Computed example of a mutant assay.
Amino acid sequence: MKQAAAKSSLRRLCPNIDKEDGLETVLEIPIPEEMFATMGSNVTVRWQNMLTWMKAQTEDKLSSPAVSARLNELRFLLYLVGSPLIPLQVQLGHSIHRPVRDSSIEASTAKYIVQQYIAATGGPPALNAVESMCVTGQIKISASDFHQTEGVLEVKKTSEEIGGFVLWQKDPDLWCLEVVVAGCKVVCGSNGKLSWRHSSNQQTPISKGAPRPLRRFLQGLDPRATANLFLNAACIGEKIINDEECFILKLETSPAIREAQGGPNFEIIHHTIWGYFSQRSGLMVQFEDSRLLTMRTKDDNDIFWETSLESVMEDYKYVDGINVSHSGKTRVTVSRYGEQSSNHKRELEERWKIEEVDFNVRGLTAESFMPPSGLGKTPNTL
């Protein structure tokens, strides 16, 4: 893999505690050194605590109310911040060019801005040469409790959670993400026909839906997918982001896509995406999306949920001729309101750091992205 730094801050091997001369075990998901350091007073105790933590995910442990509540909270954080999806399918194939003819001024301007972005991230030959990708990194997630938006209430932050992730991709619709934070592991992926997500601690059915890209790809990791996404956008103006003058590209999810992704008890009212592209460098420095949906309760009341995510991409570095963002921050605001519900708001934040990126991984096939065996029995709930 291509090193993002001289020394990785992820721990990848677990020593054989039972046999001093035994072979070390490769961790499925590397964990941050900072996370490992909190597990005990010395290395031996830390590894023993970690093994205990990994083996603790049994049904009797999960039945404890305290443990169950803790895992539900971690799952909420990882689903909403660590592994959100985007409701638009990214164009398959390597084409990152659309004709400007018969386009409005806003649409043709957007296509020109996207072409500048393609050049800034390596150019068509480098981007089109990518067949697959593997990324490892670490994340830090913090969140507030739900608080009422009427009146002045103090927002109390929870403790910061630290974890690591591994991400594999082969073309836009073939991908798999494994992320672990504080003992909770979430695995999600897409095999080109459907996308799915579940937690290793989860006793409820696996959720699934139509194939969609992982939002993390559009946070500076996959320039070709980002370019293909915004080729259908419109340029709506300019804005200064972190002292950078940027063009604003906007994309609306169509009614047909919103209807297809709705469910029996909820409806997606809108989902809007914005990209902020630096006029100086051509790179995308901020990515936003906002979704509003309504849910019908058992009492036949409507409750509205609005989720807004704002990601800032930083530390762009070239890997095999492709300019990739190696760190950033995502802020999430979740609002709940309705006639029979008090207005509540919750704020979350994720900071990420990419440790290694490798393109064109050998031996990666479509079989590498097979969904869990029990997926066919579950409803379309993703």
Rank of each mutant, 00 (worst) to 15 (best):
R75M: 07
R98P: 10
I105K: 00
T121N: 11
E131R: 12
N72R: 04
S41M: 10
K55Y: 03
Q89D: 08
A120C: 07
G137M: 07
E59K: 13
V90K: 11
T121G: 01
L62K: 00
N49S: 13
Y112W: 14
Y79R: 11
V81D: 15
I118R: 00
A120G: 04
G123T: 15
I29E: 00
T109D: 11
S104M: 09
D60I: 07
G123H: 08
S68I: 04
R75N: 13
E106H: 01
A107C: 11
A126H: 09
I113E: 03
N42L: 08
Q115G: 12
M35C: 07
V67G: 02
Y117W: 03
G40Q: 12
G93Q: 06
K55I: 02
T25M: 12
A69V: 00
M54C: 05
G93P: 09
P125F: 05
R98I: 07
S83H: 05
V43H: 06
L74W: 06
V114R: 04
G137R: 00
T38Q: 13
E59F: 14
N72D: 03
K61V: 09
I86M: 14
Y117G: 03
E34Q: 04
W53D: 12
P99R: 01
L127H: 14
S64P: 09
P32R: 04
D102R: 10
Q48F: 08
R75Y: 08
G93L: 05
T25L: 09
L74G: 02
L85R: 06
T58H: 02
V135T: 06
Y117D: 03
L27F: 09
I96Q: 04
N42K: 01
P30M: 04
C134I: 05
A107D: 01
G137V: 02
V45P: 06
A129P: 14
P125Q: 05
D60M: 09
L51W: 02
L92H: 15
M54I: 05
E131H: 03
S41W: 10
D102L: 11
V45K: 04
M35P: 00
D102F: 11
P124V: 10
Y112N: 15
H97Q: 06
N49P: 01
G137Y: 04
M54N: 13
A107M: 03
G137T: 01
L62P: 02
V45R: 06
A110Y: 01
A107Y: 07
A129L: 13
I96H: 03
K55S: 06
W47R: 09
T109W: 12
I105M: 11
I118V: 11
R101L: 13
E106G: 00
H94D: 15
P99L: 02
S83C: 14
M35T: 05
M39Y: 11
P124K: 10
A69F: 01
L88Y: 05
A37M: 06
S41I: 11
P125E: 07
N72A: 03
Q115Y: 04
A69Y: 02
P30V: 05
L127F: 13
L77E: 13
P124T: 15
T52F: 04
V81I: 14
E33F: 10
S103V: 03
L51R: 00
A110N: 10
I86N: 07
C134Q: 09
P87G: 05
W47K: 00
W47P: 03
E34L: 07
M133S: 10
